[in-house]
């Protein structure tokens, strides 16, 4: 394992980017990781973005900045363009409903149809970030423990537990199959 894992999530306000980061962060603490999480809220209505930067390590973390993401959950084309250039050999998870990608990029890009699946299978777009959370968990290939993530998610999200569980599983299968 690398001595430091960097995870970035970014999109518009209201897409659950910060909540997603919080769940990943708490789950990682439960797994024994040291964790830092920075969240920034731009003035979204005037064209800004929301961003969560997570760093996970077994050692004490100095810089909390994500400068070369190992995993990037992108929820908007603006976010993809703003931070995609930092990607070297990480994994990009993007929602094709809201993100237009550049297929020529050298890193691995996984389409996670989070918003459409949330609307079609669960009836509400509010489950978009839970689907992405499942996809991210799957993409880490065991680094983030699936059962722990599910338990943490259900502790943090107070309502609609069955729907969120289903959304998580749908997302998990999108990045593991």
């Amino acid at each position: 394992m690398k001595d430091r894992i960097e995870i970035l999530a970014s999109g518009f306000g209201g897409q659950g980017v910060v909540r997603l980061g919080q769940i990943v962060g708490v789950a990682a603490v439960n797994q024994g990781f040291r964790v830092t999480m920075l969240k920034s809220h731009g003035t979204e209505q005037r064209g800004g973005y929301v961003r969560t930067q997570l760093v996970l390590s077994k050692e004490e973390i100095d810089s909390p900045l994500v400068e070369a993401p190992d995993y990037f959950c992108s929820f908007s084309t603006a976010a993809y363009k703003q931070f995609g250039h930092m990607m070297k050999d990480g994994v990009m998870l993007y929602d094709p409903a809201t993100v237009e990608i550049d297929a020529s990029k050298p890193f691995r890009q996984i389409a996670v149809a989070a918003k459409d699946t949330a609307v079609e299978k669960l009836g509400r777009a509010i489950y978009t970030n839970t689907i992405m959370l499942g996809a991210l968990t799957g993409a880490t290939d065991g680094l983030l423990d699936k059962e722990n993530m599910l338990t943490t998610m259900l502790q943090i999200i107070p309502k609609f537990k069955e729907e969120n569980k289903k959304a998580f599983e749908l997302g998990y299968s999108m990045s593991t199959t």
Binding site: V35, T36, P64
Partner: peptide
């Protein structure tokens, strides 16, 4: 702001 608003273990 990064200390007070940021999350850490």
């Amino acid at each position: 702001q990064l200390i007070t608003d940021g999350l850490e273990d």
